[in-house]
Amino acid sequence: MSISRASQLSRRGFMAAGGAAALGALISACGGGDGGAQAAPGGGAWTFTDDRGKKIDLKARPRRIVTYVGAGAALRDFGITDQIVGVYGPAKRQDGSADPQAGSLPVDQLEIIGNAYGEFNLEKYAALRPELLIDNMFVEPNLFYVPAESADKIFALAPGLAISTGAITLTKPIERYAQLAAALGADPKSAKVAQDKARFEKAAESVRAAVKANGGLKVLACSGSADLFYASSPAKNTDLIYFKELGVELITPDRLNKDGYFEELSWENADKYEADLLMLDSRTQALQAKDLASKPAWRDLPAVKANQVIGWNPEPVFSYAGCAPILEALAKTIRTARKL
């Protein structure tokens, strides 16, 4: 979410009238709201309470899960490899390679229900016979990338499970995905998870040390589009909240949007906040530094002139493996940056 312009992106229609009729038949065939769950080996019901306080009850541990791509990437890092059968959200880039937000997910082996905001192919989804849908939740109670106009049909096929990823510190969603993965059958004490956590904690301490060694740097998290420059609030994004806890001096914009995630600035006002270091949105939908190079307002920013710009993913993979490299890169940048 954060600097995502989700509210500004048009949502596409999903199905023609004939497709909608076919979907109705598929919903009936899949068992409607019970998710089509079948008894797993060993039997036993499965229950999990999500971050909306919603209790999900299934007849057995789900074996056919569809997730938002970032949610699936987090679960895979915690050991869930076989149950995920489909994903939606930024899975592949235009050249066919995996989108960075897919993390370690084998996207070529998964059904992609939709690859951009507003895309969610209901017929493909129903054909997967989903037992559970898992998503990030930036603004309660909305599941990220689940189109509101199709939500009823989507949740008629399988219950939705939300993990909160907004306005809390980074470690909270990581811990929740670890808990969810364990509930889905992963080993929370595996050697890999232990190694990933140790790397994450070491990286966090390296950020603290870098700030102490080179304090006073003013940092602005931002994103660029053709018409607007977005300045992000460190009070909403989980990673920025955590960076601030580690001592990073993040600038807080003073005229935030209604959800409190960012301030929209015309390019003429892109220099409103004096920053020594810019953290630039690195997601596929945002313009990158090379794309912004033609804009004088971008080139004239002191941090850009000083080559003090670091890539920033406002939607990190919420796992220790996904976030440790981010902290390591931030620590390295802070150690070598200078006040302007």
Rank of each mutant, 00 (worst) to 15 (best):
K55I: 06
I56Q: 10
I56R: 11
L58M: 11
A60T: 09
R61M: 03
P62Q: 03
R64F: 11
V66E: 07
V69I: 06
V69P: 01
A71F: 01
A71G: 02
A71K: 00
F78Q: 03
I84V: 15
V85R: 06
V85M: 00
G89Q: 00
G89H: 00
G89L: 01
A91W: 10
D95N: 15
D95C: 10
G96K: 03
S97T: 15
A98I: 07
Q101Y: 03
Q101C: 02
A102S: 15
L105A: 05
P106F: 05
V107F: 03
D108W: 11
I112H: 13
I112G: 12
I112F: 13
I113T: 02
I113H: 03
A116D: 09
E119A: 14
E123D: 04
E123K: 07
E123A: 06
K124Q: 12
K124M: 06
A126G: 02
A126E: 02
A127P: 01
L128F: 09
R129C: 06
P130Q: 05
E131C: 13
L132H: 10
I134Q: 06
D135R: 11
N136F: 07
M137G: 01
E140K: 14
E140P: 11
N142T: 02
N142D: 01
F144H: 11
V146T: 15
E149D: 15
D152M: 08
K153V: 08
I154Y: 12
F155E: 00
A156C: 07
L157R: 04
L161F: 12
A162G: 05
A162V: 02
